[in-house]
Design a protein around this nucleic acid. Structure first.
Lengths: 221, 221
DNA sequence: AGAGGAGTTCTACAGTGTAGAAATGGAGGG
DNA sequence: CCCTCCATTTCTACACTGTAGAACTCCTCT
């Protein structure tokens, strides 16, 4: 009764930790983290809110499960290039894609580290690839951590929902003195378009290349 | 009556938006974001909780002010090296230092963008320096954004307080299969110590250097 | 003195997480 | 068959939340 996947809602009207976590994630995606509550989760599950507490000791533990649910959604079947730097970029992009699908849960990913086996295995893949390119394991681990933090940091700024209610209106443009920020004005007038995807990619490539020279990484041949 | 700085509590027992924001930040620092409430803020201010609503329309707006308070704490008087890459690293580190002092508020910084004049001026400094090293303003802006997102992403993972209550206990180490994560085990056995400061610095230098070659930056001479 | 208004307080309401007791229902043993 | 046990679900209750709306207090200006 523990390992049935897919459109889960076990045969008998009984709950599952997985089903609860999935429903919680769906609810957060739909209505936002602030609007999420155990009572609404209970409603979504068509069950008394307190029933959830038989599977999770509290809301925090449920959030941990939600984060892990997201990690399981990373597409690990992507085609990976041969070159080490392109391979790393591919892995990281796959991770970003999965996370990007859950803007309201990003803040949970960012602040609730998970150390369960599936996630560690994921890290292992990256670390091993870097090691194969010549990095010491400790350095590889540090690099992967930087990739991860950059990714969610960038995602938070891009699509992350504000914690603590919607943000206020932007300040009156009239109160800004353009002469104090000439370069920003220049960028704006140059037709500045904010494409988060290409910007993220640019930064990721920069970091990968920089690490490459910093640690002397190359593909073995 | 609007511009008195420092250990602020205006002459008459009356409130100020600044004083409220500062007290709110102090309360968040001391007790955490989840424990923060308008009632406790009122108590800290020795005032009826509802009094705050005369200065901020709601808690979200107050949070915006809290974030801005943190930005004002960035030390802008640091000595800046001549080399463009070292200069950028110095600016970013100063930003990180200010943010690092408020672990419980990091998540607010990460998700509540501020576009007020003081912050834009800060961005201008960085963008202008990059432009002086040969970057087009739009590229410089993109780079600065990457530096910022990397910084708070890294800080969140480092010292950020979990959103939604404390995290649960780590999974039983016995359930982990070491043979599935050999490189991680190797890193651990090699005496892996996690020094967030040097790791952040390493990643930042990598990104700066990578951007440097990506955009052909050099100091004018 | 009287009016007005900015700042503060009071009261109240719907909604929160979750502790603790009570109910439900199915499985196993006699 | 009944009866017991126990996992699961529900019920009730409590202290706490953000904030709407009215009422109250003073200070300032005429």
């Amino acid at each position: 009764m523990e390992h049935n996947d897919a459109l889960e809602r076990p045969t008998r009207p009984t709950l599952t930790a997985r089903h609860i976590a999935q429903t919680a994630l769906a609810t957060i995606d739909a209505n936002g983290l602030d609007a999420f509550s155990m009572r609404k989760l209970g409603a979504a599950l068509e069950v008394d809110p307190m029933a959830v507490y038989h599977y999770f000791p509290n809301k925090a533990a449920l959030f941990d499960a939600v984060v892990e649910t997201i990690y399981t959604q990373i597409d690990t079947s992507v085609a990976v290039p041969d070159a080490w730097d392109a391979a790393i970029a591919t892995y990281v992009s796959a991770m970003r894609t999965a996370m990007r699908a859950h803007p309201h849960a990003l803040v949970l990913i960012a602040t609730r580290p998970v150390n369960t086996a599936p996630v560690l295995v994921l890290v292992e893949v990256l670390v091993a690839r870097l090691a194969r390119a010549g990095a010491r394991p400790t350095d590889a681990l540090a690099m992967v951590n930087c990739f991860g933090t950059y990714t969610i940091g960038h995602l938070l700024a891009d699509v992350g929902a504000p914690v603590g209610g919607p943000e206020g209106p932007p300040p009156d443009a009239a109160t800004l003195d353009p002469s104090a920020i000439p370069t920003l004005v220049a960028a704006y007038e140059a037709g500045w378009v904010f494409d988060a995807d290409v910007q993220f990619d640019s930064g990721l490539r920069a970091m990968i290349a920089g690490f490459g020279t910093q640690f002397g990484l190359t593909d073995p041949r």
